[in-house]
Amino acid sequence: MTFEKFVFYLFAAILVFAATMVITRRNPVHSALFLVLAFFSSAGIWLLAEAEFLAIVLILVYVGAVMVLFLFVVMMLDIDLATLRAGFIRYMPVGALVALVMAVEIFMVVGPANFGLDKVPAPVAQPAGYNNTEELGSVLYTVYMYPFEVAAVILLVGIIAAIGLTMRRRPETKYQNPSLQVRVKKADRLRVIKMDAED
């Protein structure tokens, strides 16, 4: 077994373990942390496949931003786990059976019978100076320009939808207006009253 193969199986084993833990842990914070581990190990596998840009983006975006935000939400919300878990045991046998059938089917299709090395040759290793990021960038803004622009519009719609659904002035909530606070003058707040000194 070459060292590369060993690293692949190591990361793959950690990935499968972490993914299993994500869906079986009782505490959602633990699940989220295991998901971070799963992302790290899949980033490692991508590095092995010479896709270093995707690996870094996965860590930066998913681990750095999405999962931190997710942990934040999990800690802020009071999720009632008892109701979420109700019926887990009841649906477990059917769910497990369906999952098993699906897993066997998927293995039969994407397994060595159809994607073995004799069917799909292994990609040629790139020379040392090869830059995956540059390769992606050169097609992203030329060949895939139209899909890229549409993706940008999707992000814009995401912003509009998020703001449209959450920004609202509730009359009962109290909020500060920093602009007014900064602009306040001494005269607005302080009134000097002249009065005679008392004996």
């Binding site: 139209y146 899909p147 549409v150 993706a151 999707i154 719609v157 939808a161």
Partner: peptide, 18 residues
């Protein structure tokens, strides 16, 4: 292409979710 069709679909769906 499948990529364009998928992006169009997501754009439509995201607007309707909101």
């Amino acid at each position: 292409s499948f990529l364009t069709v998928y992006l169009g679909l997501e754009l439509l769906a995201l607007c309707f979710y909101a």
